[in-house]
């Protein structure tokens, strides 16, 4: 009885989550430039459009560049901070932990508007690099959380053991801490990368008038009517996210990364 109920419930949730994506996937293979479902005819040309149309291609390049760089910067901010908080007793340093988590916890409009007023006041409004910094700050929470989890999973006696065997602080970091924390760095980077790729409001408020990322491009296209490329880009996004998170799950412990420490015992 329970198992039937569970299957039904899982199916309904899965349907709810998948339905819009199924429709979008169907729409993306329409032969003509109309919004129709079930699709009329079949064509993969709208996927080619992402790469052949200069506007979409530039938006894709801008999004990927932004995501690659901002995720890197986010990890560069989070790693020393998480390491310091793990290594040292400095209660007041927790304020930076709080600051690192705040941008992601508050409504995104707040961070976006803060960035907008800041860059405008500082005179850098519209510069592409401001979007990199803004995204790095906005998403620093993700590597910070995965890295903090990762550090707590390192047995401190490993560090002590390395010290008794002659390793100084930097040798310990290089030979023990870094290899053990590496999977968490990778997953923190992956989380930040995927979310940056999808982010709209912060990018829009910082560089929206000078540069188009894919979400901005989709939104602009949405306001001026419909083109099936929107649908094919959407499918591309979902697939990218699924592949990246799938890889994280394949090479890391996803339940643990999401805070389920007890999963070790199963």
């Amino acid at each position: 009885m329970t198992s039937v109920f569970r299957r039904l419930y899982f199916f309904l949730i899965a349907l709810f989550l998948a339905l819009p994506l199924i429709v979008v996937a169907g729409v993306s293979v329409n032969q003509k430039q109309t919004l129709a479902f079930p699709p009329e005819g079949f064509s993969a040309s709208w996927y080619g459009e992402i790469f052949s149309n200069a506007e979409w291609r530039n938006a894709l390049a801008a999004s990927v560049t932004l995501a690659l760089l901002s995720a890197m910067l986010a990890v560069a901010i989070a790693l020393p901070l998480a390491w310091f908080l793990w290594r040292r007793v400095a209660p007041w340093a927790n304020i930076f932990q709080l600051l690192g988590v705040a941008p992601f916890t508050l409504p995104p409009v707040i961070t976006a508007l803060g960035m907008l007023t800041f860059w405008a006041t500082a005179g850098f409004y519209g510069q592409p690099w401001t979007a990199v910094v803004s995204h790095a700050i906005f998403f620093v929470t993700l590597p910070l959380v995965t890295l903090s989890l990762g550090f707590t999973s390192i047995d401190r006696s490993l560090v002590e053991a390395a010290a008794t065997m002659g390793a100084d602080e930097s040798a310990i970091f290089r030979t023990v801490v870094l290899p053990l924390i590496l999977p968490y760095i990778v997953s923190g980077y992956a989380f930040a990368f995927v979310l940056s790729l999808n982010e709209y409001i912060v990018a829009y408020m910082t560089v929206g008038f000078t540069m188009e990322t894919l979400p901005i491009k989709i939104f602009n296209a949405l306001r001026y009517g419909y083109t099936p490329t929107m649908a094919s880009v959407t499918v591309l996004f979902v697939a990218t996210a699924a592949v990246i998170f799938g890889l994280v799950a394949r090479f890391g412990d996803l339940p643990k990364l999401l805070g389920a420490m007890a999963s070790d015992e199963k």
């Binding site: 006696s157 053991a161 010290a163 008794t164 065997m165 002659g166 290899p179």
Partner: peptide, 28 residues
């Protein structure tokens, strides 16, 4: 400091490095 004392120590948890092989652990 510990790392300059030329000790050998066995910990209660053993503290074997999980990312290294048996040989690499001993050679550490």
């Amino acid at each position: 400091p510990t790392h300059k004392r030329n000790l050998g120590m066995v910990f209660q948890s053993l503290a074997l490095f999980p990312h290294l092989t048996v040989g690499e652990n001993i050679a550490y």
